[in-house]
Amino acid sequence: MVPKIITRNVDLYYSSFQALKNVSIEIPEKSVTALIGPSGCGKSTFLRLFNRMNDLIDKVKISGEILIDDRSIYKIRSSEIDNLRRKVGMVFQKPNPFPKSIFENVAYGLRVNGINDSQLIANQVERSLKNAALWEEVKDKLKKSAFELSGGQQQRLCIARALAVEPDIILMDEPASALDPISTAKIEELIFDLKKDYTILIVTHNMQQAARVSDYTGFFLNGELIEFNETKMIFTNPKNSKTESYITGRFG
């Protein structure tokens, strides 16, 4: 197992509130890692470390080491943050397409990063939509507004949008929580397909989902990483009693 992401002793404060406490983890590449835990446990904050989304919030203080491909992502120059964000894609809780056409939504990441070659863009849009299992459904209406798609389709469009800039890592923050069961199943299927090329981190509230899609699972509680292990170990033989209480539904 090759670790793609490594954190060592990461603390994160919002003003005086400590949201992450001494978190150390090694996340293997080309796998799906689920982050579970009750609301406010820090799992979303943890997810947002890796594309430096936490930087956008005022009064955030981060210490410890965070490495992607053995490079510390908090010691890079600020001009390299855009590059980092291209390498680390993100999918959000609610589908959030831009007020543009389906095509332009996917092309967005390419255009803002200076690519103007329309042939290249068209190819990349097609490939991304195919990878996101959406191409067949939208190939005849690429010029239509993205808002005309259903919720599940919108979410797959957002995944395609993230794939278009060819990231290595995809962060997913409860990507199916706003969707119906059928759309959820499609997204889970898609995650399964994507892991042969991408390292995927997924925050989820849904324990069955974590068990279904992930190879590894980390359990967070009050900002601490309580336990991190292969998913089947976590769900069949948790080492920590808190983990056990959580997955058997005793709290959260």
């Binding site: 001009s79 390299e80 855009d82 590059n83 200076g114 690519i115 800039v165």
Partner: peptide, 14 residues
């Protein structure tokens, strides 16, 4: 595999 133009980030910044 696509390569992004190197000066793009600088241009964005300015």
């Amino acid at each position: 595999m696509i390569t992004f133009p190197e000066n793009a980030d600088l241009k964005k910044k300015w």
